[in-house]
């Protein structure tokens, strides 16, 4: 199997389409015959990353890269960046607005969920520039 790459655009505040990128990624992985337990972990991680871009960022994209030994997800956004990554990683900590919380988002579980589902997990963020989350799951 060669390395396969896909890219999905995610708009800020687009709650109607939020989840579409994750859904497409899940369908691709299913077609590739990836193990169901791994697909579940990736579905959870990409959904959290996608929702974070919708809620917190100015827009972004998600890259999917599949090679014979691993699946790599990179969620990249255009800012505003995370002021304190250590705090953001704490379960229950969230800067989401009341409006977003009323929809059931903003539980402060996004980043911890992503980390839990990944074999390798990395957050890089620069204030005013943006955030990049890299996740690798071994097949």
């Amino acid at each position: 199997m060669d390395v396969m790459q896909y890219n999905f655009n995610v708009e800020k505040d687009d709650f109607d389409r939020a989840g579409e990128a994750s859904s497409n990624i899940k369908k691709i992985l299913r077609q590739l015959g990836i193990d169901a337990a791994i697909i579940r972990r990736i579905a959870i991680a990409t959904y959290e990353a996608e929702i974070n871009i919708v809620i917190h960022s100015l827009g972004g994209e998600i890259d999917l890269e599949v090679d014979p030994s691993s699946i790599k997800i990179i969620a990249r956004d255009k800012g505003p960046g995370i002021a304190n990554i250590e705090l953001a990683m704490q379960a229950g900590y969230s800067t989401a607005s009341d409006k977003v919380r009323e929809m059931g988002f903003g539980a402060g579980m996004g980043l911890p969920n992503m980390k839990k589902c990944s074999d390798k997990f990395e957050v890089e963020s620069e204030l005013g520039k943006g955030t990049t989350i890299s996740m690798i799951m071994f097949i």
Partner: peptide, 23 residues
């Protein structure tokens, strides 16, 4: 709480929720 459901609900579960939007 959608993130909570995301990390705890299992395949084939019935999900009871008061949330009414497309997500």
């Amino acid at each position: 709480l959608l993130s909570w459901v995301m990390s705890h609900a299992k395949k084939d579960d019935v999900w009871i929720t008061v949330m009414s939007h497309a997500n």
